[in-house]
Simulated scan of single mutants.
Amino acid sequence: MKKNITFTLGIILFSISIGFSQAKKPTLMVVPSDVWCNQNGYMTTYDNQGSITNVPDYKRAFQENAEVLQVISQINGLMSERGFPLKNMESAIKTLESNAAEDNMRTSKDSGSEVNESPIDALKKTAKADIIIQLTWTVNKTGPKKSISFNLQGLDAYTDKQVATAVGTGEPSFSAETSVLLSEAVLAHMDNFTETLQTHFDDMFENGREIIVRIQTWDDWDGDLETEYGDEGEELGYIIENWLDDNTVKGRYNTTDMTESMALFEQVRMPLFNDKGRAIDARRFVKELSDYLKSPPFSIPNKLVMKGLGRATIILGGK
């Protein structure tokens, strides 16, 4: 009897350990921060619908500054040792360049307009990382000794909300290797940092990924969000809310604003995986709502537009 109890307890403990070992980790990508890129002259500009915007020039930073690759590789190694899968930023940039070449040849079938997308949004979409880790570092010199001050910021790739942070300064050293100094400085903070990242991802896994959904209407559409459908004559705005009730994780979302011509839903918690266990993003999730509205009895033509990874807009009344 005692042997059976011991054997059963062993099986339970083994099962628990297997469960923890298979716990899904967030996918990360480490990038030099905007502050570091600006301080070191690695910035470029792009035309954001008529407004000139400054953004980091990551490609030039990698090509011209060997320290960037060394420092990011060092942080990648520390994260990898703790079981966190990482996206390689250099590889993501190369893929981005290939996609950009295709986009430059693509124009709208109606107006001839070119694809308009923020370089940062394009990089996030290419990398498909759950969390972007922005890294800022400064080399401090005191006589022959050097030390490193650093700032690690874990940002949710969909909302840009800061979900983890680590700040500190390492011990002075005669070492000339910036990457080694950084590793020594960060090491004491890394476990707390990764635990906070994992807590955030566990919350997403259980309660859904947070996105924003906006509903707008074309000005030539003869309907609006107060148009009634079905035998019960329910208004379209409430119909959309009912869909969100049924399809968000635990029915979690906020109706921030609702008028006859627009609706704004924030803190919309979409599932990370579909019924088949496949990962989905905001575009695929909101496309289901788009298709639902295109189907009878609504039969509303609409256009789905994405801004970044976590903001989706459905424009009702046409493509």
Rank of each mutant, 00 (worst) to 15 (best):
W218Y: 14
V68Q: 05
A263M: 12
I131R: 00
G318N: 08
T53P: 00
E102R: 15
M258K: 09
M204F: 02
P301I: 06
L155T: 06
S91A: 13
K294D: 08
F150P: 05
N247T: 13
L197W: 02
R106M: 10
S108W: 09
T194D: 02
V71H: 00
V186C: 10
P271L: 01
Q22F: 15
V68E: 01
N48G: 03
L69C: 06
V268K: 01
S15Y: 02
T194A: 04
P26N: 11
V30S: 08
R283T: 11
I16D: 06
E232L: 08
E102V: 15
G251Y: 14
Q162G: 06
K307H: 13
E210N: 12
V71P: 08
T199W: 12
I239M: 08
I12R: 03
K3C: 04
Q198N: 09
L28C: 14
V139A: 06
D121V: 06
Y42S: 00
I132C: 01
A282T: 14
L304M: 06
R214W: 00
V139M: 13
I215H: 02
F201R: 11
G170T: 09
Q134Y: 06
K128W: 04
A312F: 10
W218H: 11
Y253V: 03
M306K: 09
D219W: 04
R214M: 07
A92P: 02
N40Q: 09
T8P: 00
N192W: 04
M89F: 08
G41P: 00
M1D: 12
G208M: 10
P296I: 02
V286Q: 06
T138C: 00
M43D: 07
K94M: 13
T178D: 06
A23H: 11
F62R: 02
H189V: 07
L181V: 07
Q153I: 12
T227Q: 09
D231A: 12
V167A: 05
P172H: 15
D224C: 03
E117N: 13
V268E: 02
F7C: 08
I131C: 00
V31L: 10
A101T: 14
G19L: 15
R269D: 04
T178I: 13
G154S: 12
G41H: 01
N254F: 05
T8F: 14
T217S: 11
D202Y: 08
Y253D: 09
T142M: 09
L304S: 06
N38L: 14
E171M: 10
I240M: 11
M258Q: 10
D121T: 04
M89V: 12
K250W: 02
Y292D: 03
V213N: 07
